[in-house]
Amino acid sequence: MTTVASAGVRFHSGSQAIPAAAVHTTPLGYDRDDIPVGTPLPVPASAALVDRLSGCGEIEVAFEGKLGDTLLALSTVRALLDWLRLRSIPVAVRPVGPYAALMARSGLVTRTPATALSGRRAVIGDRAGVEARASESVVGLVCDPGAPPCWSSDGCAHPDLPSRNYLALERRLGIRLPGTAPFAPLFPTVPSELVEEVHAMGWLNGLTIAAIAATSWPERKDYTAQRYIELAELIAERWQSQARLLLIGGGTDSSGIRITTEIPRRHVQILRLDGVPADHLASLFPRCQLVVGNDTGLTHLAAMARGRDGAGPPVVGLYARHSHSKWRTGLPHHHAVATDLSDRMHQGDLCPVRDAIAPNTDIHMNAFPPAALAQVCLDLLNGVSA
């Protein structure tokens, strides 16, 4: 479902299927629905890659870069493990680096098998992670978010990065893998003392909205705390309820966790959480009723985080310049509110940075008026736009 949120801004539902004819795509080369799982593909595999991976007894998952790029690349790890299981190759999977604890929750990490095939190691991760371990591995798989195109198969486009990454490796391995969309792994909640402390303070009762204020590009992607507060005020007023707003910030200068309260507004109480590690936030987000954020790693994490019952809140990402379909998880509850420029990047499979595309106007996060965004959020809370 695509609806107009305000002038030049549209809402795009996460459950919306995108026809291949509507966007610029690269044909996958086969219709997945017509090929049984485990069957060779009608496109040639990378023989050298298959040969090297077949002799590995350990997979090291090494991401050193941005959280968002890491999360959207984990479907590549899923594809590799699906392939190894189809071939009955026993391996141990070991996450390393700053996101090791978080990745251990994804279900992708396995215990060391009783008898490993060999001591040879493959490394999969971003360029920094793979290059740092090149001397210790026989094969490296670099996950580059700029590499895989928007694939099309069975009449549908697969624009989100988890789909792009999974299908790209499937083609290279030359065999129909068992995965189906959405390809992004999930992070089930685990006990968190910090989350329980926040709950004991009364902050997770009633209408709780999490707003992602952290960003790696504040000049372009900072919606600002003031706009989030105005948004929460409008939602609470129309919802006829008090709201609790959790402003999720990034790291502080002291590199520690900082939790502070702000002066309450008429309808909203405000709690700032800065420097909270991602693994704690993955247990916090499912306790909220709504998450709103810019195109950043913590917003993607909110979509991938699920409660013990597998449920979680709707997540709304704000996209001013980059493609709203590529930089999403592909999960049905991960929605987008996007500008016309973002929609053009989506349609043409373009990137304003990579392709040096200058917008006609200097588009920033003020393209999303809180009043229009509040209506989108209210529709989601009421189950209208999902």
Rank of each mutant, 00 (worst) to 15 (best):
G8F: 10
R10A: 14
H12E: 06
G14Q: 03
S15I: 00
A20I: 04
Y30V: 15
Y30P: 11
I35F: 06
V37D: 12
V37T: 14
P40G: 07
P44N: 09
A45D: 14
R52A: 15
I59T: 15
E64W: 08
G65F: 02
G65L: 09
K66F: 00
T70A: 12
L74Q: 06
T76G: 15
V77I: 12
A79H: 07
L80W: 13
L80T: 07
D82L: 14
I89K: 14
V91S: 13
A92E: 07
V93L: 08
P98A: 06
A101K: 13
A101G: 09
A104K: 11
T110N: 07
T110R: 15
P113G: 04
T115V: 14
L117R: 15
R121F: 12
I124Q: 09
A132F: 08
E136F: 14
V138N: 04
C143P: 09
C150N: 10
C156A: 14
A157V: 05
H158G: 02
P162S: 07
S163R: 11
L167R: 11
E170P: 10
G174I: 04
I175D: 07
R176F: 01
P178E: 00
P182M: 12
P182D: 07
A184H: 09
V190A: 13
L194Y: 04
V195P: 01
E197D: 12
A200Q: 13
N205V: 05
L207K: 02
T208N: 09
A213Q: 11
A214T: 06
K221E: 13
A225L: 08
R227W: 02
Y228C: 03
A236C: 14
E237P: 01
Q242C: 11
R244S: 10
L246N: 03
T252Q: 05
D253R: 14
S255T: 01
G256V: 10
T260R: 04
R266F: 00
Q269C: 07
Q269S: 12
I270V: 15
L271F: 01
A278H: 13
D279L: 00
L281N: 08
S283G: 08
R287G: 01
C288K: 03
V291W: 01
G297S: 10
L298D: 00
T299Q: 08
G307Y: 01
R308E: 10
R308M: 07
A311K: 10
G312A: 08
V337M: 08
L341D: 00
S342W: 02
S342H: 03
C351N: 15
P352M: 00
I357C: 07
P359Q: 07
N360W: 03
T361S: 12
A371Q: 13
A371L: 10
G383H: 10
G383D: 11
S385D: 11
